[in-house]
Simulated assay, not measured.
Amino acid sequence: MLENFIASLAEWILRVSNGEIMWVAFYAGLFVAVITSLGALVAIFARSIPEKGVEFSLSFAAGVMVVASFTSLVLPAIESTDSFSPAGIGVALGVLLIYAIDRLLPHEHLVKGYEGPRSMKERLRKVWLLVIAVIIHNLPEGLAVGTSLVYNLRVGLVTTIAIGIQDFPEGTVVSLPLATLQKKRLQPIAMGVLSGFAEMAMVLVGAYFFTLFSWLLPYGLGLAGGAMLYVTVKEMIPEIYRREESETLVTLGFFAGFYVMLFLDSMLG
């Protein structure tokens, strides 16, 4: 049933887009941006988010990202060339790219604290440091959607749906802590919406670049996969396992996301 839905959705999107991949990417990017924004709007109604809710949401997103990194990005990169080299090089480039951004761009995590050049710490307000951190996390997700759509529309749609599902709690995780810190609602919601549209921009950039340079697509798929894996392993997993008493909850959240993405991906078989 879901397989038929995805096939019908792919046909409908191609029809309304006249087969133009950039219009397909626009609709996919808009979808993830809107879902993220809806998650951010939760800050209107709630005063705070339980810490366990944050941990479960992040662990769910981590599970989705781990599976998507392989099934929608790394493995298709290998299959498209019957070679490990382009995928392997792409993964390494993705890791190095996010590592460099992580080190050079000032940002602040709610748990780990400040990361980036020390000279920049006092120049930026904490709210902007937090928003930059979220945007850094969202860029690989947008790139994953854009590159997977260029590779294969159905694979890209599955990736879009999965990323969208985990973007709702991510939008909430952005806006609610900021609302708690600032004792305001409008600006934190705007920041959550901004993070979603930053992800949409990356969808369009990835789709446009790899449409122009299609011979680089296997490297791009690997790059997006490596970038998502780096964010998941280096940033998300350490944060969600920081409290030993929540280990069972976050493990369940991780595997919930893992199975959701795996189930969606199985619809392609």
Rank of each mutant, 00 (worst) to 15 (best):
A25N: 00
Y27Q: 05
A28Y: 03
A28I: 08
G29Y: 00
L30S: 12
L30W: 08
F31M: 11
A33K: 07
A33Y: 10
V34K: 05
I35G: 07
T36W: 08
T36K: 06
S37P: 02
G39M: 08
A40H: 00
L41G: 04
A43P: 02
A43W: 06
A43Q: 13
I44M: 12
F45W: 15
I49F: 07
E51T: 02
K52E: 15
G53I: 02
E55R: 14
S57W: 00
S57D: 08
L58G: 10
S59L: 06
S59D: 04
V64I: 15
V66Q: 03
V67S: 00
A68W: 06
F70G: 05
F70N: 03
T71L: 14
L73I: 09
L75E: 14
P76K: 04
P76C: 04
I78N: 06
T81S: 09
D82T: 12
F84K: 12
F84E: 13
P86A: 03
I89R: 07
G90L: 03
G90I: 14
V91R: 05
A92G: 06
G94T: 01
V95E: 00
L97I: 11
L97G: 02
I98D: 02
Y99L: 14
Y99P: 10
D102Y: 11
D102W: 06
R103D: 11
L104H: 00
P106I: 05
H109N: 11
K112T: 11
Y114F: 12
E115K: 14
E115H: 13
E115D: 12
R118Q: 13
R118C: 13
S119K: 15
E122H: 12
L124T: 05
L124V: 14
K126S: 10
K126H: 13
W128E: 03
L129V: 03
L129K: 05
N138M: 11
L139S: 07
P140V: 05
